[in-house]
Protein backbone atom coordinates (compact mmCIF):
# COMPACT_ATOMS: atom_id res chain seq x y z
CA UNK A 1 0.00 0.00 0.00
CA UNK A 2 2.77 2.47 0.90
CA UNK A 3 4.54 1.49 -2.31
CA UNK A 4 1.40 2.20 -4.31
CA UNK A 5 1.00 5.50 -2.53
CA UNK A 6 4.62 6.45 -3.17
CA UNK A 7 4.35 5.57 -6.85
CA UNK A 8 1.14 7.57 -7.22
CA UNK A 9 2.72 10.51 -5.39
CA UNK A 10 5.62 10.44 -7.86
CA UNK A 11 3.14 10.38 -10.72
CA UNK A 12 1.35 13.35 -9.18
CA UNK A 13 4.63 15.22 -8.78
CA UNK A 14 5.58 14.56 -12.39
CA UNK A 15 2.18 15.76 -13.64
CA UNK A 16 2.24 18.78 -11.35
CA UNK A 17 5.71 19.89 -12.45
CA UNK A 18 4.73 19.73 -16.11
CA UNK A 19 1.65 21.82 -15.32
CA UNK A 20 3.96 24.27 -13.60
CA UNK A 21 6.01 24.74 -16.78
CA UNK A 22 2.83 25.74 -18.57
CA UNK A 23 1.35 27.79 -15.79
CA UNK A 24 4.54 29.77 -15.12
CA UNK A 25 4.50 31.48 -18.51
CA UNK A 26 0.75 31.91 -18.45
CA UNK A 27 0.60 33.52 -15.02
CA UNK A 28 3.26 36.09 -15.95
CA UNK A 29 1.52 37.04 -19.19
CA UNK A 30 -1.72 37.42 -17.27
CA UNK A 31 -0.22 39.10 -14.29
CA UNK A 32 2.10 41.61 -15.92
CA UNK A 33 0.36 42.35 -19.17
CA UNK A 34 -3.21 41.79 -17.98
CA UNK A 35 -3.67 39.83 -21.17
CA UNK A 36 -5.67 36.63 -21.44
CA UNK A 37 -3.94 34.18 -23.74
CA UNK A 38 -6.04 31.19 -24.76
CA UNK A 39 -3.40 30.28 -27.32
CA UNK A 40 -0.91 29.32 -24.63
CA UNK A 41 -2.01 25.70 -25.12
CA UNK A 42 -1.34 26.06 -28.83
CA UNK A 43 2.24 27.08 -28.09
CA UNK A 44 2.52 23.86 -26.11
CA UNK A 45 1.16 21.88 -29.06
CA UNK A 46 3.26 23.61 -31.70
CA UNK A 47 6.30 23.29 -29.44
CA UNK A 48 5.73 19.55 -29.14
CA UNK A 49 5.42 19.26 -32.93
CA UNK A 50 8.65 21.23 -33.37
CA UNK A 51 10.43 18.92 -30.94
CA UNK A 52 9.03 15.79 -32.61
CA UNK A 53 9.92 16.99 -36.09
CA UNK A 54 13.42 18.11 -35.07
CA UNK A 55 14.03 14.89 -33.14
CA UNK A 56 13.06 12.87 -36.21
CA UNK A 57 15.27 14.95 -38.48
CA UNK A 58 18.28 14.84 -36.16
CA UNK A 59 17.56 11.30 -34.96
CA UNK A 60 18.26 12.44 -31.42
CA UNK A 61 15.73 13.30 -28.77
CA UNK A 62 17.95 15.81 -26.98
CA UNK A 63 18.91 17.74 -30.11
CA UNK A 64 15.24 17.72 -31.06
CA UNK A 65 14.26 19.06 -27.66
CA UNK A 66 16.78 21.90 -27.89
CA UNK A 67 15.87 22.81 -31.44
CA UNK A 68 12.15 22.57 -30.75
CA UNK A 69 12.35 24.83 -27.71
CA UNK A 70 14.40 27.35 -29.66
CA UNK A 71 11.90 27.20 -32.52
CA UNK A 72 8.98 27.82 -30.18
CA UNK A 73 10.83 30.79 -28.65
CA UNK A 74 11.26 32.31 -32.10
CA UNK A 75 7.58 31.71 -32.86
CA UNK A 76 6.70 33.34 -29.54
CA UNK A 77 8.84 36.34 -30.45
CA UNK A 78 7.11 36.73 -33.81
CA UNK A 79 3.66 36.42 -32.23
CA UNK A 80 4.48 38.96 -29.57
CA UNK A 81 5.84 41.49 -32.02
CA UNK A 82 3.04 41.18 -34.56
CA UNK A 83 -0.12 40.38 -32.63
CA UNK A 84 0.11 40.44 -28.87
CA UNK A 85 1.64 43.88 -28.77
CA UNK A 86 -1.60 45.13 -30.37
CA UNK A 87 -3.71 43.22 -27.87
CA UNK A 88 -2.32 44.44 -24.55
CA UNK A 89 -4.28 47.67 -24.77
CA UNK A 90 -7.49 46.03 -25.96
CA UNK A 91 -10.29 44.80 -23.72
CA UNK A 92 -10.41 41.22 -22.54
CA UNK A 93 -13.06 40.31 -25.07
CA UNK A 94 -10.78 41.19 -27.97
CA UNK A 95 -7.99 39.20 -26.38
CA UNK A 96 -10.22 36.17 -25.96
CA UNK A 97 -11.39 36.37 -29.55
CA UNK A 98 -7.96 36.95 -31.10
CA UNK A 99 -6.29 34.17 -29.11
CA UNK A 100 -9.21 31.82 -29.81
CA UNK A 101 -8.64 32.58 -33.49
CA UNK A 102 -4.98 31.69 -32.98
CA UNK A 103 -6.02 28.29 -31.65
CA UNK A 104 -8.08 27.64 -34.78
CA UNK A 105 -5.21 28.72 -37.00
CA UNK A 106 -2.62 26.71 -35.07
CA UNK A 107 -4.69 23.51 -35.08
CA UNK A 108 -5.45 23.71 -38.78
CA UNK A 109 -1.92 24.68 -39.77
CA UNK A 110 -0.47 21.78 -37.83
CA UNK A 111 -3.01 19.46 -39.48
CA UNK A 112 -2.02 20.89 -42.85
CA UNK A 113 1.69 20.37 -42.30
CA UNK A 114 1.89 17.16 -40.28
CA UNK A 115 -1.43 15.51 -41.12
CA UNK A 116 -4.26 14.48 -38.83
CA UNK A 117 -2.61 11.40 -37.33
CA UNK A 118 -0.60 11.90 -34.12
CA UNK A 119 3.19 11.97 -34.32
CA UNK A 120 5.10 9.48 -32.26
CA UNK A 121 8.05 10.67 -30.26
CA UNK A 122 10.25 8.10 -28.56
CA UNK A 123 12.29 8.75 -25.43
CA UNK A 124 16.05 8.25 -25.69
CA UNK A 125 16.85 4.52 -25.77
CA UNK A 126 18.71 4.64 -22.46
CA UNK A 127 15.68 6.02 -20.64
CA UNK A 128 13.00 3.77 -22.10
CA UNK A 129 13.26 1.16 -19.35
CA UNK A 130 12.48 1.17 -15.64
CA UNK A 131 14.84 1.87 -12.73
CA UNK A 132 14.56 0.45 -9.25
CA UNK A 133 13.86 2.87 -6.42
CA UNK A 134 12.86 1.95 -2.89
CA UNK A 135 12.06 -1.60 -3.86
CA UNK A 136 9.93 -1.01 -6.92
CA UNK A 137 10.43 -0.16 -10.55
CA UNK A 138 9.67 3.28 -11.87
CA UNK A 139 10.03 4.47 -15.48
CA UNK A 140 13.40 6.19 -15.84
CA UNK A 141 11.98 8.70 -18.26
CA UNK A 142 9.40 9.95 -15.77
CA UNK A 143 12.21 10.54 -13.28
CA UNK A 144 13.99 12.64 -15.91
CA UNK A 145 10.85 14.71 -16.35
CA UNK A 146 10.66 15.26 -12.61
CA UNK A 147 14.32 16.33 -12.60
CA UNK A 148 13.71 18.78 -15.44
CA UNK A 149 10.66 20.21 -13.69
CA UNK A 150 12.53 20.70 -10.42
CA UNK A 151 15.47 22.30 -12.22
CA UNK A 152 13.25 24.78 -14.05
CA UNK A 153 11.35 25.57 -10.85
CA UNK A 154 14.64 26.24 -9.06
CA UNK A 155 15.96 28.36 -11.90
CA UNK A 156 12.77 30.40 -12.04
CA UNK A 157 12.91 30.93 -8.31
CA UNK A 158 16.44 32.28 -8.52
CA UNK A 159 15.58 34.39 -11.55
CA UNK A 160 12.40 35.90 -10.15
CA UNK A 161 13.33 36.21 -6.50
CA UNK A 162 17.01 37.10 -6.73
CA UNK A 163 17.82 38.78 -10.05
CA UNK A 164 17.24 42.32 -11.20
CA UNK A 165 15.09 41.24 -14.14
CA UNK A 166 13.06 39.20 -11.69
CA UNK A 167 12.55 42.25 -9.56
CA UNK A 168 11.23 44.15 -12.58
CA UNK A 169 8.92 41.26 -13.38
CA UNK A 170 7.57 41.18 -9.85
CA UNK A 171 7.19 44.94 -9.88
CA UNK A 172 5.39 44.75 -13.21
CA UNK A 173 3.00 42.13 -11.87
CA UNK A 174 2.07 44.11 -8.81
CA UNK A 175 1.84 47.56 -10.39
CA UNK A 176 2.47 48.05 -14.06
CA UNK A 177 2.03 51.82 -14.27
CA UNK A 178 4.37 52.47 -11.40
CA UNK A 179 7.02 50.23 -12.92
CA UNK A 180 6.73 52.04 -16.21
CA UNK A 181 6.98 55.37 -14.44
CA UNK A 182 10.22 54.24 -12.82
CA UNK A 183 11.78 54.01 -16.28
CA UNK A 184 11.82 50.26 -16.72
CA UNK A 185 11.60 49.20 -20.37
CA UNK A 186 8.29 47.45 -19.90
CA UNK A 187 7.81 46.79 -23.57
CA UNK A 188 11.06 44.85 -23.77
CA UNK A 189 10.23 43.10 -20.52
CA UNK A 190 6.88 42.00 -21.96
CA UNK A 191 8.57 40.55 -25.03
CA UNK A 192 11.13 38.70 -22.95
CA UNK A 193 8.50 37.23 -20.62
CA UNK A 194 6.32 36.13 -23.51
CA UNK A 195 9.20 34.45 -25.33
CA UNK A 196 10.31 32.74 -22.15
CA UNK A 197 6.77 31.46 -21.59
CA UNK A 198 6.65 30.08 -25.13
CA UNK A 199 9.96 28.26 -24.58
CA UNK A 200 8.66 26.70 -21.35
CA UNK A 201 5.54 25.54 -23.23
CA UNK A 202 7.66 23.82 -25.83
CA UNK A 203 9.82 22.26 -23.12
CA UNK A 204 6.73 20.79 -21.46
CA UNK A 205 5.32 19.65 -24.81
CA UNK A 206 8.60 18.07 -25.86
CA UNK A 207 9.12 16.30 -22.53
CA UNK A 208 5.57 14.97 -22.44
CA UNK A 209 5.64 14.00 -26.12
CA UNK A 210 7.08 10.51 -25.57
CA UNK A 211 4.61 9.82 -22.75
CA UNK A 212 1.52 11.09 -24.54
CA UNK A 213 1.14 11.61 -28.23
CA UNK A 214 1.94 14.70 -30.22
CA UNK A 215 -1.42 15.52 -31.75
CA UNK A 216 -3.80 18.28 -32.76
CA UNK A 217 -5.91 19.47 -29.84
CA UNK A 218 -3.42 18.37 -27.16
CA UNK A 219 -3.13 21.98 -26.02
CA UNK A 220 -6.75 22.64 -25.22
CA UNK A 221 -7.29 20.20 -22.37
CA UNK A 222 -4.03 21.09 -20.71
CA UNK A 223 -4.72 24.83 -21.08
CA UNK A 224 -7.78 24.58 -18.84
CA UNK A 225 -5.74 22.81 -16.19
CA UNK A 226 -3.14 25.55 -16.39
CA UNK A 227 -5.95 28.08 -15.86
CA UNK A 228 -7.12 26.23 -12.79
CA UNK A 229 -3.55 26.21 -11.51
CA UNK A 230 -3.10 29.96 -11.78
CA UNK A 231 -6.55 30.73 -10.41
CA UNK A 232 -5.71 28.64 -7.37
CA UNK A 233 -2.22 30.06 -7.07
CA UNK A 234 -3.11 33.68 -7.77
CA UNK A 235 -2.53 35.42 -11.08
CA UNK A 236 0.97 36.81 -11.57
CA UNK A 237 2.64 34.78 -8.85
CA UNK A 238 5.32 32.24 -9.75
CA UNK A 239 5.20 30.81 -6.26
CA UNK A 240 1.42 30.51 -6.59
CA UNK A 241 1.85 28.73 -9.92
CA UNK A 242 4.22 26.19 -8.40
CA UNK A 243 2.05 25.51 -5.36
CA UNK A 244 -1.11 25.44 -7.49
CA UNK A 245 0.47 23.08 -10.03
CA UNK A 246 1.62 20.65 -7.35
CA UNK A 247 -1.80 20.75 -5.68
CA UNK A 248 -3.63 20.13 -8.95
CA UNK A 249 -1.19 17.42 -10.05
CA UNK A 250 -1.34 15.52 -6.79
CA UNK A 251 -5.05 15.92 -6.15
CA UNK A 252 -5.91 14.83 -9.68
CA UNK A 253 -3.62 11.78 -9.69
CA UNK A 254 -4.40 10.63 -6.18
CA UNK A 255 -8.10 11.32 -6.66
CA UNK A 256 -8.18 9.21 -9.80
CA UNK A 257 -6.27 6.40 -8.14
CA UNK A 258 -7.61 6.31 -4.63
CA UNK A 259 -11.11 7.77 -4.74
CA UNK A 260 -12.78 4.78 -6.45
CA UNK A 261 -11.21 2.42 -3.90
CA UNK A 262 -12.17 4.68 -1.04
CA UNK A 263 -15.76 5.01 -2.22
CA UNK A 264 -16.00 1.24 -2.70
CA UNK A 265 -15.26 0.87 0.99
CA UNK A 266 -17.87 3.44 2.02
CA UNK A 267 -20.73 2.97 -0.44
CA UNK A 268 -22.51 0.07 -2.09
CA UNK A 269 -20.54 -1.15 -5.15
CA UNK A 270 -23.06 0.17 -7.65
CA UNK A 271 -23.13 3.71 -6.31
CA UNK A 272 -19.35 3.74 -5.94
CA UNK A 273 -18.85 2.67 -9.56
CA UNK A 274 -21.07 5.52 -10.73
CA UNK A 275 -19.83 8.19 -8.40
CA UNK A 276 -16.12 7.36 -8.26
CA UNK A 277 -14.91 8.38 -11.72
CA UNK A 278 -17.30 11.34 -11.84
CA UNK A 279 -16.09 12.73 -8.55
CA UNK A 280 -12.42 12.08 -9.35
CA UNK A 281 -12.64 14.03 -12.59
CA UNK A 282 -14.21 17.14 -11.07
CA UNK A 283 -12.23 17.10 -7.85
CA UNK A 284 -9.83 19.85 -8.89
CA UNK A 285 -12.69 22.09 -10.01
CA UNK A 286 -14.44 21.63 -6.69
CA UNK A 287 -11.14 22.47 -5.02
CA UNK A 288 -10.84 25.58 -7.15
CA UNK A 289 -14.38 26.70 -6.32
CA UNK A 290 -13.71 26.19 -2.63
CA UNK A 291 -10.45 28.15 -2.70
CA UNK A 292 -12.10 30.96 -4.62
CA UNK A 293 -14.93 31.11 -2.16
CA UNK A 294 -12.54 31.84 0.67
CA UNK A 295 -9.80 33.60 -1.30
CA UNK A 296 -11.19 35.18 -4.48
CA UNK A 297 -7.66 36.33 -5.44
CA UNK A 298 -6.09 32.89 -5.13
CA UNK A 299 -3.62 31.60 -2.56
CA UNK A 300 -0.77 34.01 -3.33
CA UNK A 301 -2.22 37.18 -4.85
CA UNK A 302 0.46 39.16 -6.70
CA UNK A 303 -1.39 42.45 -6.46
CA UNK A 304 -1.81 43.64 -2.93
Amino acid sequence: MTQLFLEQALNGLQFGLMLFLLAAGLTLVFGIMDCINLAHGSLYMVGAYFVAAAAQAADSFWIGLGAGVAGAAVLGLLLELTLFRQLYRRDHLSQVLATFALILIANETVRLIWGPAPLMLNPPEALSGPVEIAGFFYPAYRLVIIAFGLAVAGLLYLLVAKSRVGMWVRAGASNREMTEALGINVRGLFTAVFVFGAALCALAGGLLGPLLAVQVGMGESVLILAFVVIIIGGIGSIRGALVGALIVGTVDTLGRALLPTLLRALLPADAAATLGPALASILIYLLMAAILFFKPQGLFPARA
Binding site: Q3, E7, N11, Q14, F15, F136, L211, L212, R256, A257
Partner: peptide, 10 residues
Amino acid sequence: DYAAELAQIR
Protein backbone atom coordinates in the same frame (compact mmCIF):
# COMPACT_ATOMS: atom_id res chain seq x y z
CA ASP B 1 -1.13 8.62 -19.78
CA TYR B 2 -1.54 5.38 -17.86
CA ALA B 3 0.75 6.07 -14.91
CA ALA B 4 -2.02 5.80 -12.33
CA GLU B 5 -3.45 2.59 -13.82
CA LEU B 6 0.00 0.98 -14.10
CA ALA B 7 0.66 1.66 -10.44
CA GLN B 8 -2.64 0.00 -9.63
CA ILE B 9 -1.72 -3.03 -11.76
CA ARG B 10 1.66 -3.30 -10.07
